[in-house]
Each structure stands twice: as C-alpha cells, then as structure tokens.
Design a protein around this nucleic acid. Structure first.
Length: 775
DNA sequence: GCTTAGGATTTG
C-alpha cells in the first residue's frame, strides 16, 4: 500500500520509519544520497495522470510540493517537482489533493529537466517501484466523490490568454470540423470558440484516437479545454492540446440539462462547471451568430443549398472506391421530388426504402472521398448529422424532358466549411424531435416492404426469367380468404403483429391474423353485465345464485300491503308461502295496467313460468310489510325471455314511493327509472390471442363485439339460438383442436391504446370496425 | 516533450 492517509501532522511524523532521516527540500542536490531520507511538504500543484508514450504507456503524474517551514521562508528552492509512476501515480491522484501535506520516502533524486523553465528546483523527485511510499495528511476533512477530491481548475477568459502558456478555458463553439485525418499521424479537430469577451480563438486538437476528440454537434455547443497551450498565429491567439489535455463538451441549449459529453471515464466536474456552462449558454443565446442558425429539414430544403441535416440512416451501398450512397430520412416530406439512386438489392445494406421512396421521404446522399471512412462504419438505423451537405437538382435517368428535376444530395470531399458527418449520441437533444417525426410513419410497414422487396427482385430479374407468381409459388404466408371484413373508412396501412407491438399508442391500424386461442372457452361467459354509469363489468349471475335469492326472499313471507298497489294473493304448494301479485293503482284503468306486475313469494322457476304470460314481472319481497326490491344479485325484471339486472353500486333506493304515471310503454329502461334502478347493459367480451408470422398479441373484442357477430348481446342473453350462433362463428374462426394452417385468416381493424393501470401505462389492443362475413 | 492545421464550398 504505497499511499497511506493519516489523520494529523503528528501522525505523519510518527509514521516516519526510524531509519529515515527528514531532509529539507532546499538542501537536496543531485549528489544527495537519497536512501534513508524523506521530505515533508505541502502539495501546491497536482497534475492529471497521463500515459507516457516514451515509457511504453506507463502512467505518470507530476506534482509540485513546497516546504512550509517558517524558518526557511527566505530560502531558495523550497518547491520541487515530484513525478509519480505507475500505480503510485493513480493512487496519489485519488488520495491526495492540492493543499494536503505529504511525506515522501524512498524517492530517487534526478536532475530537473524543467529547471531552466520553471526555476523551481535543480532536482526532481521520482517515486517509483515498491519501496517508495507516500503518507498523506488531508488538509481538511476528507470528502467523497470525484468533484471535490481534486484541485479546482481555473479558467482563463479568452481575451486574457498570454502566448506560450498552458491554460484551461471554456468557450462556445462558433465553428468546427469533425475530426479528419491530418497529413501527420493523428486525426485533427479544428474549432473556433468564443466567450463573453467576444474574442474568437482558434483551436486544434490532435489525437490518434478518434474517441478522444470532443463531440461537437452544432455551433453553439460549449466546450471545456484542459491543458491547452496558447500561441499566436496570424496575429491572434490559438490553442493546441498539450500533455495531459482533456476536453468535455455540452449542448448549448439554454435550460437543457448540463450533461457532459466525454469519452473519459473519470473527469472533474462540479457545480461551478454547471454554472459556467449555463452562463455561456445564456450569453450565446443573444448573439446574432447563433440566433440566426436555422434548422433545415427535408421539407424545407431548397435546391443549391449547403446545409446541416439531422436524420436516420435507412440503408447504404458502396458505389465505388470514392463514393458511398447513404439513404436517409428525417420523417419530413420533401417539397421537390427526391432523386432515387437505383442500387441492386443485394448491394444494399439495410431495409428497403421503397415505401418511403414512394412518399418522397428518402434522401439519397452521395458521400465522397475523405468521408468514406466514417460512412463505411455506419449501421442502418443510426442517427446522423451531415454538415455542409449540398443539395442540387439532377435529372433522373428515366425522366421525361418536361418533368421536374430531382433533388440529390452530395457530401463532397474535403472539410471546408466543416463538411463532414457524424453519428449522434443517444442523449443528443435533436434526437427527440427527429424520433417523434419518424414515429408519425410507423404505418409504413414491413408488410409493404416484403411485397416491395419481391417487386424489387423481379425488377432486377431479366425479363425472360420473370415468373408471375401463382398460388403455389406465393409464400407470403398470409394469403387466402378472410372470414372477416373491415368496415372502417380510414385507410391505415397493414401492420404485422410485431410492428403493432412496437408502435406507440394511440393508433388505429389494420392487421391480418389467425385466432390462436380465445377466452372465455365457455362461451356463455362472454356475456357480461356492464354499468354505463360506474363502468362495472360483472358476469351474469348463474341460476343457482339467483334461485337462492328467491328462496331467501320467499321465506316466511307475509304479503306486503302498499297503498299504491292492488294485490291478489294465492297459497303456494309449500306451507307458509304465499304468492302475491301487485299492480299499481295508478295504472288501473289505463291500457298499460297489465304491463307491469310485481310478484312476491315465488321461486325462480315459478316466476319463469309466469313470465310466459305476463310482459314485465318485477320480483319483490316484504320487509316489515313494505314492498322492497330483491337483492340485486337477482334480476329486478323478468321480461319475456330476458332478465334485467340493476347495478348494485349505482341503483337508488326510491322504491318506497314509485311513480307509475305518464308512461305509455313500459320497457326495461322506463321500469328501471320508475324503480330507481340503474339498468345494467348486456355486453359481449372475448379476448383473442391473435397470431401472424411475426408475433402473437392479445386483443379484446368488446365495443365492436355485437357488430362483429351480428348478434345483440341482450338478445343473446335470452336466446339459445343466438348463443349457438356465436359458438358456430368461433368454431369457424378457431376450429377446436385445429392446427395453424387450418385456422382462417381474419382481416381486422385494430385500435392500440394506453390504459393507466396502477399508475403504469399499459398498452391494450381492441378489435374495431370488423364484422364476420356471413354467407 | 511539439509534425499534423491554422475554416473559407465539388465540380462526382
């Protein structure tokens, strides 16, 4: 453990092994015997860890330490450079910082190569190997995190730069070139930066490694340069990276998050950096050279322009040794017809662009010469920015003389005007608007691309080899008649299920799929009760539950006696149970008087028998002599074949004084209102597991279910025939025990929508605007 | 311990 921390100064002295002799820095000479000596001093400068090319990439760190013994204040050479090597350099970098007191032991004493320049000390100390050790007494309480463990950097305003000094600066980028190969051994980045002093300073960065170059995306980005050397070139100051250099860049948008862009894994960044970035952003926003920046999209590009384009790579093809074709889009439609550069499909890497070509969305960009190196490595799907892209009108090969010329794009060779291209980092702010523009076209689907791909292949096949596809040879896999027909009027593109799953709701689309499974398997369970008021959805109670309510209600009943009702009673076969029928006195004498009868004391079976002869029967029970509705688990109304239920949650208890006047025809709705019952609707609900070649997906048949089956849910509730009809349809579209091939295709219109479920957005699918074909 | 570039439209 070569670097150790101690708690105080005396601790530091106690750590000195007894064989070591404390030596003052001023007294060190090149001939001093280094062994058994140690020095104690304060760190006044700590450099970064750098990798030394001359020493096989070994890591090095330079620090300057100063002896602060008051007695020696007037003495010369109280400071000395210390070079740490290898792991010691890294350890020291992490453990010590400016202001700490350190004790160094077992160093080597070497001639200082910088003495003439820095006048510090004729010697320097070199800390290397296993013996050398360092004790550190932190100057203040230890702190945590990288932001405070290093010396604070000072930044020089750009108008204060002095020639031949090494500085740290901040600036707003006013011009830049993406890194390009220099004539020497490195890549070169060229930038011009400015700051609140309004002085513009040119800057060149040389590095063999592309990833070490700063990520500059647009004019207005902010860059921080550490350890850059100043010099005068053509009467103005310029900056060049020097040993231990680093750069960090930031987006320049006011109020956007301050996110450092760097390839470095560890770098110094603190609150003050954030403030500097925000101040520069604010200042730059009011400068004309930045506020005049305009964004050009494919929809706004004009012929002859040089402009920057943010886009996504769709496909690429090598044209020749000096030219690559990049097919891109930005989701906007060009006002001018876009030139399509025809490439054989086997030479094209990436998706077919045919559907997008057709909508004039694909820009064909020819990339030349020095830009090939970047273009070659790009993968389709990558988000890109082109700089100084040239748009020009060109005559298409097959173009008739009176047709308009087509717009083509060239990224010419060279780097003038910052010409170049780069892939965009994921957090780039341009990306959000680009992605949302692209998402507007999710309906340009693979289905079309499959077919268009087939067309393309045919296009490139010599005429004699063209074979018209017949049924056997067509293996798109989704042909054949559909058992359903879409009734929607919109003209959405057809998507595969995989595409549907990738899409962003809300969306309406068309699909072609089989039904792999469905729920409920017991189809009568697909009949549901739905309260349109509180949206409660429940199963229709089964007969045993309803019969139980009737039995309980009829137990020990005494016929109720209501002023508003005329009653007739009869004994049942069971002792102690009286069956009573009541009608409203209001209705006596009206034509409607037999339309609504209240029945008390029956079993479920008995009221079913009675309902053959009477139109509307409301089962009631007696509670302390007063007529009361039954528990709403049971139907509140028997009407012919149908039973109607009330919502337990929403029904009001207004039965005490029912009003039966002014109604011409008693239907379930009128009766529910008179009784203060919230009528529940019958609905059909089935969950399909849909399947195509790409994926499976669970979709509900709900709002559209009655239209789908051509069956009314309420009618089905009272009709075995209609229930059988639903069963037959289901057996057709999903024959029991069928294989995939035996299941027919369904053309479906599908709604994709988001539902909040426990505060999480869940995507749901519902079959819409689709009906079964009836022969 | 210091070459490269140091902005300034291809001509396909």
């Amino acid at each position: 453990m070569p670097v150790q921390k101690v708690n105080d100064s005396s601790d530091l002295d106690a750590k000195v092994p007894s064989h070591l002799q404390r030596t003052s820095i001023t007294s060190l000479t090149i001939t001093s015997e280094p062994s058994h000596r140690c020095v104690k001093a304060k760190v006044v400068h700590k450099g970064p860890v750098i990798s030394c090319a001359q020493k096989d990439g070994v890591e090095m760190l330079r620090a300057e330490i100063r002896e602060e013994d008051p007695l020696q204040r007037a003495a010369e050479h109280t400071s000395i450079n210390v070079i740490f090597f290898g792991t010691l350099a890294k350890d020291f970098s992490q453990s010590a910082r400016q202001g700490d007191v350190v004790l160094l032991a077992d160093f080597a004493i070497k001639k200082s190569p910088s003495f003439l320049r820095d006048k510090l000390h004729p010697c320097q100390l070199e800390m290397d190997g296993d013996n050398a050790c360092v004790y550190v007494w932190p100057s203040v309480a230890p702190s945590y995190g990288p932001s405070t463990s290093e010396a604070k950097y000072t930044y020089v305003p750009l108008n204060m730069l002095k020639p031949k000094t090494v500085v740290n600066v901040y600036g707003v980028v006013t011009f830049f070139k993406q890194p390009f190969p220099s004539k020497g051994s490195d890549y070169c980045s060229t930038l011009k930066i400015t700051d609140q002093s309004d002085v513009k300073v040119g800057c060149n960065i040389f590095s063999k490694k592309l990833e070490d170059h700063p990520v500059i995306i647009r004019v207005g980005d902010i860059i921080r340069l550490h350890r850059f050397k100043t010099d005068v070139f053509r009467d103005s100051m310029s900056l060049l990276n020097t040993y231990g250099w680093s750069t960090v860049s930031f987006d320049g948008t006011v109020d956007s998050p301050v996110v450092p862009r760097t390839s470095s894994k560890s770098f110094h960044f603190e609150e003050s950096d954030k403030r500097i970035v925000q101040e520069l952003r604010q200042w730059a926003a009011n400068q004309s050279w930045i506020s005049n920046e305009l964004t050009v999209s494919l929809s706004s590009v004009q012929p002859g322009m040089y402009f920057d384009l943010t886009c996504q790579l769709l496909a690429k093809a090598v044209m020749d040794s000096r030219c690559i074709l990049l097919k891109v889009w930005d989701g906007t439609k060009c006002q001018h017809p876009l030139l399509n550069v025809a490439v054989a499909s086997d030479a094209l890497e990436g998706e077919s662009t045919v559907p997008k070509d057709r909508m004039n969305l694909t820009a064909n960009i020819l990339v030349y010469d020095n830009h090939l190196e970047v273009a070659r490595d790009l993968k389709p799907g990558t988000f890109l920015r082109f700089y100084n892209l040239h748009s020009l009108l060109q005559r298409a090969p097959d173009q008739l003389p009176d047709q308009p010329n087509h717009l083509s794009f060239h990224l010419h060779g060279g780097t003038s005007y910052g010409r170049g291209l780069r892939s965009l980092p994921a957090e780039s702010p341009d990306l959000q608007s680009l992605k949302s523009a692209l998402e507007k076209h999710v309906d340009l689907d693979e289905y079309d691309e499959v077919n268009d791909g087939t067309l393309l292949e045919i296009w490139y096949t010599p005429p004699e080899a063209v074979v018209l596809p017949n049924d056997e040879e067509t293996d798109a896999g989704d042909t054949g008649p559909s058992y359903t027909v879409r009734t929607c009027e919109h003209n959405s593109q057809r998507l595969t299920l995989a595409q549907v799953k990738r899409s962003t709701p809300p969306l309406s689309c068309h699909i072609r799929a089989h039904v792999k499974k469905y729920k409920p398997q017991q189809l009568y369970q697909c009949l549901k009760l739905f309260c349109s008021n509180c949206k409660t959805l429940t199963d229709v109670p089964d007969d045993s539950a309803v019969a139980k309510v009737f039995r309980e209600s009829a137990k020990d009943n005494q016929p109720c006696d209501e002023q508003w009702a005329a009653t007739s009673s009869a004994s049942s076969r069971e002792p102690g149970r009286t069956i009573s029928m009541h009608i409203s006195r209001d209705m006596v004498g009206e034509s409607t008087h037999m339309q609504l009868i209240f029945v008390e004391g029956t079993t479920l079976d008995e009221i079913c028998v009675l309902s053959r002869d009477y139109k509307n029967l409301v089962p009631v029970r007696s509670v302390n002599g007063r007529m009361t509705l039954m528990d709403l688990t049971a139907p509140f109304l028997f009407s012919g074949d149908k039973r109607y239920y009330g919502c337990k949650r929403c029904s009001l208890n207004t039965f005490q004084s029912p009003v039966f006047t002014g109604v011409e025809t008693w239907d379930e709705q009128a009766i529910a209102e008179a009784l203060g019952v919230q009528l529940m609707q019958y609905r059909l609900l089935i969950q399909f597991e849909l399947e195509d070649q790409t994926d499976t997906l669970e979709a509900l048949l709900w709002e559209n279910a009655e239209k789908f089956f051509h069956v009314s849910a309420v009618d089905a509730s009272g009709s075995q025939d209609l229930q059988d009809k639903i069963q037959t349809i289901m057996d057709t579209i999903q024959p029991p025990d069928s294989s995939l091939e035996e299941r027919p295709w369904l053309d479906l219109c599908l709604s994709v929508y988001a539902v909040k479920d426990n505060d999480r957005n869940q995507v749901c699918y519902q079959i819409d605007n689709t009906e079964i074909k009836e022969e």
